[in-house]
């Protein structure tokens, strides 16, 4: 099991290094352990997160890619779809449960053909367009919906913090 996961992760790493998508860097923290990756995500342009570089950690299960990895931001984040402890809550990281009603078709779920690249791209679009339908961080969701200026100010402070600049 772990052998095929390892091969697949190495293949993904190779692909991400040869042809990196814009604004994303990702790879294993150490070459001894391919099941723990670090990723750097640039805040998408034209949003309140623009200019920031956000570090995150990805933990892969031994049955990857049958099960999805877990993703957690290691810097302070304030976003409707990110828990206070940094865990990311998006559909692509959820195993495909049964969905007989079919009303979650629009949201993409985890499947073995998804990849680290697709996860990170989804996270970038999540940063650009939060889903405020009662979020992982309810305070952030309410602020994003009702006091956008205040939300943007907090986001800009976080951006400066990730860059090591004084707030």
């Amino acid at each position: 099991m772990a052998g095929s996961a390892l091969r697949r992760l190495m293949a993904e790493y190779k692909q991400l290094t040869l042809d990196p998508p814009e604004g994303i860097v990702a790879g294993p923290i150490s070459e001894d352990n391919f099941f723990e990756w670090e990723a750097l995500i640039a805040g998408p342009e034209g949003t309140c997160f623009e200019g920031g570089v956000f570090p995150a950690r990805l933990i892969f299960p031994t049955d990857y890619p049958l099960s999805p990895p877990k993703m957690k931001f290691t810097c302070d984040m304030f976003h409707p779809n990110i828990f206070a402890d940094g865990r990311v809550c998006i559909s692509i990281l959820h195993a495909p449960g049964d969905d007989p009603m079919g009303y979650e078709l629009s949201a993409e779920r985890w499947s073995p053909v998804q990849s680290v690249e697709k996860i990170l791209l989804s996270v970038v679009s999540m940063l650009a367009e939060p889903n405020d339908e009662s979020g992982a961080n309810v305070d952030a969701a309410i602020m994003w919906r009702e006091q956008r200026d205040e939300f943007n100010a907090i986001a800009r402070r976080l951006v400066r913090k990730t860059l090591g600049l004084p707030a």
């Binding site: 809550c89 559909s91 959820h94 009603m101 979650e104 629009s106 339908e133 009662s134 979020g135 309810v138």
Partner: peptide, 24 residues
């Protein structure tokens, strides 16, 4: 059965939209 519902309000999941969050 396979019913989709919200843990917090025990209502059908449908009105909660396509997301995985808590219920207000």
């Amino acid at each position: 059965c396979r019913y989709d519902f919200c843990w917090v309000c025990l209502g059908s999941w449908e009105p909660h939209g396509s997301s995985w969050y808590s219920c207000n």
